[in-house]
Simulated assay, not measured.
Amino acid sequence: MRRSRPPAPAVRMVGGFTLLEAIVALVVFSMGAFALYGWLSTNTIALQRIRDRQQVEVAMHSALDLIRRSNPMETPAGQRQLGDLTVTWNSEPVEPPKPGVDQSGTPDVFMVGLYDVQVRVTRGGDQLHAFHVRQVGWRQVREVGDL
């Protein structure tokens, strides 16, 4: 008589993920996605701050150019529009006007004075920037041939 062998255990084939593995994979992916979202959000906020600061810098340089072209002795206070910007200034003398002299020390045709100019830049009623600058004012007091 032949002995029979016991039946071999059935080989179980695993084909796919279990529910627990899928949940763990989703949790790991979600943690990475949240970290990435936080990083992107921080970068977006920083980029917006940089853009806002650039707009303020452009507005300030435009206002400074306008003030540098003005004469505080003739127009000590005023307001001008630069596109959508409003530039307002007010000047106060630091030194009283004095007769100007050239490099050789001879009298010039101008009276000159030093002014402290307070400048305010607004857009739509909101103040973008305020600063002050020292500016020379001048006034012609005689003709070139009168020296």
Score class of each variant (00 low, 15 high):
P93K: 05
P93T: 03
V94I: 04
E95P: 08
E95G: 02
P96N: 06
P96W: 02
P96H: 06
P97C: 01
P97D: 02
P97A: 06
P97M: 05
K98D: 00
K98F: 07
P99I: 03
G100D: 08
G100L: 04
G100R: 06
S104W: 01
G105F: 02
G105K: 09
G105D: 09
T106E: 13
T106K: 14
T106C: 13
P107D: 12
P107T: 10
V109P: 13
V109Y: 15
M111F: 14
M111I: 15
V112Q: 12
V112C: 09
V112P: 00
G113C: 07
L114S: 02
Y115G: 00
Y115T: 03
D116A: 06
V117K: 08
V117R: 05
V117L: 10
V117A: 01
V117Y: 00
V117T: 11
V117W: 07
Q118E: 04
Q118D: 11
Q118Y: 09
V119K: 11
R120F: 02
R120N: 10
R120P: 10
T122P: 10
T122N: 10
T122W: 12
R123A: 07
R123G: 08
R123T: 07
R123V: 10
R123M: 11
G124C: 05
G124T: 04
G124K: 03
G125F: 02
G125N: 12
D126H: 09
D126S: 13
Q127L: 13
Q127P: 00
Q127I: 11
L128A: 09
L128Q: 08
H129D: 13
H129E: 14
H129R: 13
